[in-house]
Each structure stands twice: as C-alpha cells, then as structure tokens.
Design a protein around this nucleic acid. Structure first.
Lengths: 116, 116
DNA sequence: ACAATACTTCAATTGTTATTGAATCATTAA
DNA sequence: TTAATGATTCAATAACAATTGAAGTATTGT
C-alpha cells in the first residue's frame, strides 16, 4: 500500500460531510446509494454533495456506477481495510497486549459489534 | 465516540508529515520518542515539526510528557482503535463476508502481521 | 550567573480546500 | 421533440492549513 493512496483516503475522510457520506455507504453495503438519495438523507445541496462525492471517488474510497440518470455510489471496503492496515502496521511490536482491543473491536462477525 | 473527535483524528492524519510522525510513534510503542529524535529521523526543521506535533497532540492521537528539557511523544493507541471502530461501524451489516479481510488484517498477534 | 540545548510560539506569507449560484450535460417521460 | 429530472462542472468568493524565520521559554551544563 503506498503512502499517497493512504493520504488521499485520510484527506477524503477529514471533512464532516465526506465522513458522513462514507459511513452512510459503509452501512449501505453492496446496495450502495444514488446521489440524490444521499443528498436528501444528509440534507445537502446537490452541487456541494457532488463536490464531496468527487473527492471521495478520486481517493478510491467510493466507486460510482451509472444507472440511467442516477449515479450509484458504493464504499470500497477493501481499500478501507488497507488504509487501516497501513495505520496499524507494527502497532504492537513487542507488546501485543497494547492493541488487544483492536481485534475485538473489528471482529464484526461477533455479537458485540452487532450491538454497537 | 463523538464525530468531532474522529474528524480531528482524520484531519491530523491527512498530512504526509503527521502520518509519518504518527506511524513512527505507533512503532515506537510505550517508549515513544522525543521531539528532536523525531525531527532528525524525518529530517524536519524543529519549528515545522513542532507545528505538526501540536496538531497531532490536540487531536488526541499523541500524548506528550516532559522529561527535563525534552518532550517525549507517544501514540494514543486506544484512540486509534476507537477511530477505526467509528469508521467500520456496521460495515458488514448482513454480509459479514464483505469485510472478512478486516479481522485478519488487524490480528497483530499473528505471524502474517509480524511479517508485514 | 551565563551559555548552550531542546523545543515552542508568533507573525507573515503562501498555498490549498469549501461553498455557492449559474450554467451545462445526460437521461427519461410526456 | 420538448420538458423535466438527476447530477456534474465552472467561476467566484470565502475560509482554512502549511511553511518559514525570528523571537521566546525552559532546562541543563559549566
């Protein structure tokens, strides 16, 4: 994973609007959401949302697919995982207990995470 | 975990210098590193590094401790974990297989992660 | 006490990012 | 084919972040 890609991802996530958009699409999963749907959910002018969707897409965190006159956006989960891996790389070198919470937090197949 | 805290963390990580600093300290672990040490490792002027250390510290991603005339910085791993949790929250609702790579990637106590 | 070292703050400049309304493009419905 | 809808682009303005050198504060060594 190269640093500039990770940086672009963090830049993309460092705006409140884009963070909301991305999280919305993380939850939406495979189905994704079309732009207008996102705009009304987050109560944003189309022009401003478009600006942020472009930034997120250019960072690679979102993908777009055209559906007639709609644009369907989806979160790129594998990229998200790679970014996290880059950040946490070697995080507990010598002291695995320091980041014990990490595995637990991220085991999204367990009960606790479903309750979160 | 509140959104503004997460945003501050992403803002902090969205600069190449701060990303390098943070990762350096993630690897350094409990021991941390003093400012001058970080400056020489990353080849940065003290004044510029100081600016970025302040931003990282204000975001909560770093802690500082004074040691005589030195300032020792450490990564705040629990906050990093919370930020990741916020981002990945509900990431595989209904489709656990979509983020199967997540658990594996982040199991830093396993062999593969030590080799990364 | 004085000088040196470690680091931070300040102020000025430069560069980058966000927001908005108007205009545009593409697709669908009448 | 004309009108309506969904979405993006453009240009202008406003807001914010990064870098630098000079000055300042705190601690240690002589």
């Amino acid at each position: 994973m190269d640093k500039t890609a990770v940086l672009q991802a963090f830049e993309a996530l460092s705006s409140g609007i884009r963070l909301d958009v991305f999280r919305l699409l993380v939850v939406a999963g495979r189905e994704g959401r079309v732009a207008g749907d996102i705009a009304s959910t987050l109560d944003l002018p189309a022009t401003n949302l478009s600006f942020h969707l472009k930034a997120l897409t250019q960072s690679g965190l979102l993908s777009v697919e055209q559906e007639g006159r709609y644009q369907r956006y989806r979160a790129n989960i594998p990229l998200m995982v790679q970014v996290i891996a880059y950040l946490t790389d070697n995080c507990c070198a010598g002291h695995p207990e320091d980041c014990a919470g990490l595995r637990q937090t991220l085991d999204c197949s367990n009960e606790a995470s479903r309750r979160r």
